[in-house]
Amino acid sequence: MKLVSPAGTSSSAQRVFVARWLSKNVYLVGGTFLLLMFVIAALFGEQIAPYGANKQNLLEALEGPSSDHWLGTDPLGRDLLSRVIVGTRHTLSVAVISVSLSCFFGVLLGLISGFVRGPLATAIDALVDVALTIPNMILAISIAAVMGAGMTGLIMAISISFTPPISRIVRGRVMEIREEDFIAAARTIGVRPWRILLRHVLPNAATVIVIEASLQAGQAVLTATALGFLGLGVQPPTPEWGTLLGYGREYLHVAPFMVIAPGLAISLMVLGFNLLGDGLRDWLDPRLGN
């Protein structure tokens, strides 16, 4: 232990406080900034991209990065930068739609199984227990295999396999809230259970749900692109990031640059969601931080 003067303590404490405050908000600001860029790319992909995503030019096939094609071209002479930009919409919408669905059903199941006591809660609990035993990716692959390759199969695969974890987290939070005095008070004055659930329990669980949704979206991007890589996502010529990486793998010997951009795009989008989730956690619920 170092001895410091009171003045020194307060100024260093202040510095630590400001530094910590800044570093926490760096996550939130950084994540939001990254995701905003992707939202813009998703909305205006065709306008931003220097070339058409599917415009072929066999005279310029497999060219390395140059001033004309910043990230090079693929074997059909398509501009890789344009394909990655236009592909943003697909991955972002799969992630957002799947996580919205998994959150809706996960929150519903979690609210019921955490709040109600009885056979219904036990049944939901058992079902979630069982579902959690199937590794996420394996479940997603099986669902995508059964549904067939495509956007619908992909969204179903991710939303179904992501529902059990969020329902488990919501259930835990609801069981905590259920024991709070204000819930007992509401019960005592005769507020109906479903009203307690929606007006008192849900708003108090919202923080956990929002944080979890953001972190899940990052995982959804990883799962969606992995399925694309395995050939279980949308089919070519749609420029999906995972599919682009699968395609690039075949040309690793002649055109290693083909795998740089799609992978970087996936990583940055996941990073954006992860930073947003961690930033939200620090901002909304300081107790949960590490």
């Binding site: 990052g218 992995a226 995972g242 990486l245 996936i266 990583s267 992860n274």
Partner: peptide, 8 residues
């Protein structure tokens, strides 16, 4: 590392 897909 937590953001990078394992296959990339």
């Amino acid at each position: 590392l937590l953001a990078v897909p394992n296959f990339w």
